[in-house]
């Protein structure tokens, strides 16, 4: 599963700190993972867990934030994006690595027709003439399912519905045949029937274009149907990683367990009460010294409060950062509720 043959992206010990008035916010704290060519990876976590900041760092956009300190390495096809000068990153950004943002309303420039938004990348990155770029844009728009693309290319973002705007954004992201696509909550702003359309489109296009996709979301259902490998983040760290099926069937980290249990499911009998995770997500500027999940964890012991558990292998392609992972791994056969 872990397409190790062709490593496209390799994030090594990435940390992103933001200076703020309340102190230093450790948004991302020593995150390492890799993505193979054409691989579909899901990055799951709640708001404030650092998943979007990770994406921002991969795109090299953190360098534009004056209060951000980034350490570690982000190797894309062997080149460390953090070490490259801005002009070289600019060539990669948008061409080789593209992004689909959460909110199609605020992330498309409202004063430009979508044709301009689309041809911009094609002209700058691929050196197409305006006529060629326009022709290609129309082609892309029809690929993503926008009817009468030739006419609609002159329309402005506000003339499109939410789902259509997200299609436009996907078309822009795909325009330069990127090898890596970062989709940050691509369907969160959309209705469920539109979400189904967009997810189907993304699946179809990623296989057609052979692009690797990192889907960043809080919705476990979205990644379950789309991704082959899952990364779970909590308070700036990856707490669990593994191939989707075994991970969903049998999570090894208490947080993943809690997350999966707290969501009601349409294909399961109706429970009287949901099993919720107690407490609140931690404040990233005042993280506890040990495991960040310890205050909410039913397995926590003294050990958990003192030191942060390392991310260690728990099975084929699986890693988990928990001192008590053995207890949860054992459950694979035992089936004991906490």
């Amino acid at each position: 599963m872990n397409a190790g043959s062709a490593q496209l992206l390799s994030v090594k010990d990435l940390s992103v700190d933001f200076a703020s008035q309340e102190g230093v916010v450790h948004a991302v704290d020593g995150v390492s993972f890799s993505v193979g060519s054409g691989e579909l990876v899901g990055l799951v976590g709640e708001s404030g867990c650092g998943k979007s900041v990770t994406a921002t760092a991969i795109l090299g956009l953190t360098r534009m934030l004056p209060n951000a300190t980034v350490t570690g390495a982000i190797e894309f096809e062997g080149r460390d994006l953090l070490a490259l000068p801005e002009n070289e990153v600019r060539e990669i950004r948008g061409r080789d690595i593209a992004m689909i943002f959460q909110d199609p309303v605020t992330s498309l420039n409202p004063v430009l027709p979508i044709g301009r938004l689309m041809t911009e990348g094609l002209e700058n990155h691929l050196g197409l003439s305006h006529t060629d770029a326009t022709a290609r844009s129309i082609e892309l728009l029809s690929t993503v399912g926008i009817p009468q693309a030739a006419e609609r290319i002159k329309d402005y973002p506000h003339q499109f519905s939410g789902g259509m705007r997200q299609r436009v954004m996907i078309a822009i992201a795909l325009s330069c045949n990127p090898r890596l696509l970062l989709a940050d909550e691509p369907t969160t702003a959309l209705d469920v029937t539109i979400q189904a359309q967009i997810l189907r489109l993304m699946r179809q296009l990623s296989s057609e274009y052979g692009a690797a996709v990192i889907v960043i979301t809080h919705d476990l259902g979205v990644v379950a149907g789309m991704c082959r490998r899952i990364l779970v983040m909590y308070a700036g760290r990856i707490v669990e990683e593994g191939p989707a099926k075994p991970l969903f069937r049998h999570p090894h980290h208490p947080y993943t367990v809690g997350l999966l249990r707290s969501v009601p499911r349409l294909d399961r009998p109706r429970a009287d009460e949901l099993v919720s995770i107690q407490g609140l997500p931690p404040d990233l500027s005042h993280l506890p010294p040990g495991c960040a999940f310890a205050p909410r964890c039913w397995l926590a012991t003294d050990e958990c409060w003192c030191a942060a558990p390392p991310l260690a292998a728990t099975g084929e392609g699986r890693r988990c950062a928990c001192f008590h992972r053995d207890r949860l791994v054992e459950r694979e056969t035992e089936r004991v509720a906490p």
Binding site: A196, G221, A224, L266
Partner: peptide, 14 residues
């Protein structure tokens, strides 16, 4: 259609 569009957090069910 609405019910069938809801993604299920389980790759196998998906």
């Amino acid at each position: 259609a609405l019910l069938s569009a809801v993604p299920i957090p389980d790759p196998e069910a998906e």
